[in-house]
Design a protein around this nucleic acid. Structure first.
Lengths: 131, 131
DNA sequence: ACAATGACTAACAAAATTGTTAGCCTTAAT
DNA sequence: ATTAAGGCTAACAATTTTGTTAGTCATTGT
């Protein structure tokens, strides 16, 4: 449970109000969230399909992450008619879909540096060499 | 201190290896990080200037966030010659600078939905109304 | 002699996130 | 009678992140 008046919660609120950047990041920064968003966009829009992609996730944790994404309107749940037990599919909203190209860029950014792109300090006149 | 063999740490590693998306997000998702990156890009490149912008942050916490950003080569520290006590400035690397437009888009995304942009489910034929 | 500046660190405490265990529900198949 | 499928939830434990307290260091100004 979240405390309302911890320094932690107050600081979080402060940052949320300084700029949406901070709340936006907090929406996508749960352990499995961005990967879940990606997999749903690829058509893995059922609970058990997500479990297959994420072999180490427990049901409890997956359910929790989905619920949090739903709370932020990144996705919605829909019942699939005439299934038994009643099946649920997860659909990305426009809000969730618009996140995809942004996450893609983040992914690309991470990848090029992981692959060894050179790092330097543009505003540093004296040297471009990292120490 | 981080445990090496907790489920938590193992799952994190698993996601990092699935896609750079996950490690990229984890780099920017500390409490004050994206805001610090932004403020440095605006010229607040000294410890005490950052403290002014972030009135509730403690010195310990700010130092920790800066050190983590440094560990990911988002920024570097440089000593400022002929200052006493010796001053330190923080400079964004190319890796850090390339994050700025991505964080900007995230910020814009958050803002338009915070301001009430309509949310719907494009792939849902039956209805565009949220329940 | 003492405080102030600028930039930290170590050790510890509080809070938040993540993971685990043990359940539930409804129908169909063995 | 039991098991399986598909999707969950509550309660609790482990881990991680965030915040707090109390220092340090070297020099200049009062």
């Amino acid at each position: 449970m979240r405390k309302e008046n911890s320094s932690n919660a107050i600081n979080e609120q402060f940052l949320f109000q300084v700029c949406e950047r901070n709340s936006a990041i907090s929406i996508v920064s749960g352990r499995w969230k961005s990967q879940i968003i990606f997999y749903i966009s690829q058509g893995n829009n059922r609970f058990h399909l997500l479990q297959q992609r994420l072999p180490n996730i427990s049901e409890t944790v997956l359910a929790r992450q989905l619920k949090e994404l739903e709370a932020h309107a990144i996705l919605v749940k829909r019942e699939i008619p005439d299934t038994v037990p009643i099946g649920i599919k997860y659909l990305l909203t426009n809000k969730g879909l618009e996140l995809l190209p942004i996450l893609d860029r983040l992914c690309h950014w991470g990848k090029i540096y992981a692959e060894g792109k050179e790092i330097f300090v543009p505003s540093d006149e004296e040297s471009d060499i990292m120490k």
